[in-house]
Design a protein around this nucleic acid. Structure first.
Lengths: 208, 208
DNA sequence: AATTTATGCATAGATTAATATGGCATAATT
DNA sequence: AATTATGCCATATTAATCTATGCATAAATT
């Protein structure tokens, strides 16, 4: 891959980070002012960056830049910008509305895109009924809201008006919820409602 | 706070999300085309959004929009700004330098502050030797670099030039590494070096 | 030595985009 | 009933921005 000159790199960085302060890319003129060079010179640099594949640009479009590649720092910034901040709900007591604002204990960040653009939330796991699936008391599960799931998927279900983490069993005549702990029996004869599917697990170890 | 009409809200959303596809805000004309209204009408809507405090705009600046976010949005932004982007290393083969750039498989974000300001990295777990501690093959552990740890803490240790996840046992005469799986024996008579301590666990469930 | 690349200047012209006005109709609010 | 806000159009003007072109020099490359 073509390497950038230091001048080109600093211009690329400028373009990439301009949006942190404003919310739009710079114009040629603004770039020129920053580096005390004329527009014509800026054109040349831009052209070089395009040729080297670091920058895309829409013709005749004001501020029509798009940074394709960039250095590591910029990549990190971009990762940050693609994060989703989702609410973390605590233990939901029976009868309480699950998604009440009062229940928000904090916020968790997750990478979006990969996991579809549906609505997500996080939930703190209570109890050890899923221990054989490696989900422990106090773990945090990230959940995608949906009202159905496949056999074997770990779901959040509403049971007796309480949110609970279980494995969904869906293969026979009737769907039921299965605990991943031999101490617990599967829940077969109670009605339940699936509210989401677990897509990620987080566990914090206590730090001294 | 003034409430938005549905028209105003959809225009605000359009402006806010335009940058997801491009990397710059739209022009008045582009907004107009989207909603099949003329520029003059767009002007009116923009003015309304500005008056209500949802949108800022630079005079005479092409695409000079800036969506002013609600309180909730701002809080999320603040959370994002306190994130740390750390490298994710893959399985480190014997003899290879652990922190080589070539081994970086991606990046993971973590909330900083809480966990000290030391240097962190992430590692993909290979094998099932920690299964009884709820750490599975393919899980990602977030590690804080340090060269010692307390009894019972889960550490990343360098053993035969390979990075491995184990529980540190440190209570008797001699420290040793313990697997969390009855199939595996503890590693007592080999020299090892602690390179970090596991502070967080992440597990992705496959999404359909 | 010749060529290419990077860096720079200057300027005219074309195009894009924002602004300024004025007018009209309807719904919501006072 | 009067006022205000909303929602819409049309057009002329000004400002911002991009493009095209030619020229110059030093450094790196062939």
């Amino acid at each position: 891959m073509h390497k950038l000159t230091s001048k080109q790199k600093s211009i690329l960085d400028f373009i990439a980070n301009f949006g942190n302060e404003y919310s739009y890319p710079p114009t040629l003129k603004e770039i020129g002012e920053k580096f005390r060079i004329t527009i014509g010179t800026v054109q040349d640099h831009i052209k070089a960056l395009q040729n080297k594949g670091y920058l895309e640009r829409r013709k005749d479009i004001a501020r029509g830049f798009r940074v394709v590649k960039s250095d590591e720092e910029n990549q990190k910034e971009r990762i940050k910008s693609q994060l989703n901040v989702i609410p973390l709900y605590g233990n939901v007591a029976a009868g309480e509305p699950i998604f009440a604002d009062d229940n928000v204990q904090g916020y968790v960040t997750m990478e979006k895109n990969l996991k579809g653009h549906k609505i997500h939330f996080a939930l703190k796991v209570k109890g050890d009924s899923m221990i054989d699936s490696g989900i422990y008391d106090g773990d945090i599960v990230i959940v995608r809201k949906q009202d159905s799931a496949e056999d074997g998927e770990i779901v959040i279900a509403l049971l007796d008006d309480e949110a609970t983490v279980k494995t969904l069993r869906n293969r026979r005549i009737k769907a039921y919820l299965e605990a991943s702990n031999s101490k617990y029996k599967s829940i077969i004869n109670k009605p339940f409602k699936i509210i989401g599917k677990v897509i990620e697990l987080r566990r914090d170890y206590n730090i001294i």
